[in-house]
């Protein structure tokens, strides 16, 4: 990266190292958001539609897990994936895959909790009608997920935003390896510690822009949803 360049110059000049970092961040956090959705939405649906002993406790724990500290997740995944850990055979510590695993664990509860709330609200509305139409259990879940799809996309975006902005988990399991596992947030942490504030600020601006974009997308999704589904 060019020395002494200002933050804005770095961003505008399309510095390749900077864009590689941005790209990796997006790939890792988007993948994590997709996997977390695949796990979180069915899980949330299961809780939303079923009554079982201890359900309240599960909901409380799930909501609490929305605030999982990233470093704790990072440490747990590190111990899991380390060569000396139970999944060491995989050999994926210090790789983007490990980062995706950590971020998936970090945000799956967020998506599951938001999906649970959304689907439960919709279920309360739909329950009688679907029962009168004699819709089976799988059909009910499919109907709820489909009709709540705009809200669920918003949940996915919330998870993505959280993943893209966290540093604690990815720095531990990714190792912040230059050109391989360095994301926007770990690079910001590194450059700040090196005292290279322009690059840190440049990356910070990109990250901020992405977060704003994600929120705009969420907002847009909601209004499209309202227009399409009423």
């Amino acid at each position: 990266m060019p020395e002494n360049a200002s933050a804005l110059q770095l961003v505008l000049s399309g510095d390749p190292a900077l864009y590689a970092i941005v790209r990796l961040s997006l790939v890792v956090s988007l993948s994590a958001a997709l996997f977390a959705t695949l796990i979180g939405v069915p899980f949330g649906a299961l809780i939303a539609l079923n009554r079982f002993p201890g359900r309240e406790a599960v909901v409380v724990v799930l909501n609490a897990l929305m605030g999982l500290p990233p470093v704790v997740v990072g440490l747990a995944v590190y111990l899991l994936l380390s060569r000396s850990g139970p999944l060491g055979e995989l050999g994926i510590l210090f790789t983007p895959q490990a980062m995706i695993v950590a971020q998936t664990i970090l945000i799956a509860p967020i998506i599951a909790a938001l999906a649970r709330q959304t689907l439960e609200d919709l279920w309360n509305e739909y329950r009688d009608e679907l029962a009168a139409m004699d819709v089976g259990p799988l059909g009910r879940i499919a109907t709820l997920i489909w009709d709540a799809r705009f809200s669920l996309v918003t949940a996915l975006l919330a998870g993505f935003g959280r993943a893209a902005a966290e540093v604690g988990a990815v720095i531990i399991v990714g190792g912040n390896i230059d050109g391989f596992t360095r994301t926007m947030t770990t690079a910001i942490a590194l450059e700040t510690s090196k005292g290279d504030l322009p690059l840190a600020i440049g990356l910070g601006m990109v990250l901020l822009a992405i977060v704003i974009l994600v929120n705009a997308l969420a907002w847009g999704t909601r209004s499209i949803g309202q227009r399409v589904a009423g």
């Binding site: 790939v27 997709l34 695949l38 995706i100 499919a142 997920i145 190792g175």
Partner: peptide
């Protein structure tokens, strides 16, 4: 829905597979 999800999962898998291939001949 499921078809769409499978598609998404496939995209995610292909995205993460790329770095794995580049891992050869490297040390930590």
């Amino acid at each position: 829905i499921s078809r769409r999800f499978i598609l998404l999962a496939g995209i995610a898998a292909s995205l993460t597979a790329a770095p794995a291939a580049a891992q050869e001949k490297s040390i930590v």
